[in-house]
Amino acid sequence: MDFIAILSIFVLACFVGYYVVWSVTPALHTPLMAVTNAISSVIIVGALIAAAEAENPVAKYLALAGVVMASINIFGGFAVTERMLAMYKKKEK
C-alpha cells in the first residue's frame, strides 16, 4: 500500500478512536487499559513475519522472543479483562 493510503487509514482511525474512547464509561477505564494493551499486541504480526522469514538463527530467536512477549500480553490482557468485566454486576432486583 502506498504511504498516503496508509496515512489516510491512520488519520481516520484516530478519529474513530477519539469518539469510541470518549463513549467508554469511566467505570470501565481500567478494563479499557487492559484491553487496549491486549489489542496493541497485534504487533505480534510483525514478530510472526520476522520469525517465519528469518534468514539466520539470531534473527529467528529475536523474533521468537518477540512472539513470546506479545503472546503474554495478548492472552494475559484478554484474560484479565474478562476477569474484571465478569465482576461488574447490576443491582439484584
Binding site: M1, I9, F10, A13, C14, V16, G17, T36, S40, G46
Partner: peptide
C-alpha cells in the same frame, strides 16, 4: 509504537489498533 510498526508493514490491523490505543491513552 504499534502504529509505527503498522506503517512499516503496511498492515491495516496494526495501524487501526495503534490509532485506537494511541487515542485511548491520550484521552485518559
Amino acid at each position: 509504537a504499534a502504529a509505527a510498526m503498522g506503517f512499516t508493514l503496511g498492515n491495516t490491523a496494526m495501524i487501526i489498533t495503534g490509532a485506537l490505543v494511541g487515542s485511548s491513552g491520550a484521552i485518559l
